[in-house]
């Protein structure tokens, strides 16, 4: 079982990296881009857990370590390879 965890900055939190990438896309002619927000994507391999329990464990991992909930939101998806 695998999980993909996405950690992104909360709305309203300044993302200077995203702003810089947005400006760069504009320079390359992609004028339709109105905003870029950069986050993290983590691929986690899990062993021997029922799906429900895996969801609870992942939530706990995100709250405890993977995301700083002062500044970041998280979401995850569980999938089989």
């Amino acid at each position: 079982m695998k999980a993909r965890v996405y950690v992104t900055l909360k709305r309203g939190v300044l993302d200077p990296q995203g702003k810089t990438v947005c400006a760069s896309l504009h320079q390359l002619g992609y004028r339709e881009v109105t905003d870029v927000r950069i986050g993290k994507c983590m691929e986690i391999t899990l062993g021997g857990l029922p799906r429900r329990e895996a969801e609870q464990r992942l939530k706990s991992m995100c709250e405890k370590l993977l995301a700083n909930t002062v500044i970041e939101d998280y979401r995850f998806e569980i999938y089989e390879e």
């Binding site: 939190v13 300044l14 200077p16 990296q17 810089t20 700083n68 002062v70 500044i71």
Partner: peptide, 10 residues
Amino acid sequence: PGALMCNAGL
């Protein structure tokens, strides 16, 4: 309280 993030100037 709070958090320390990437410098605004990167």
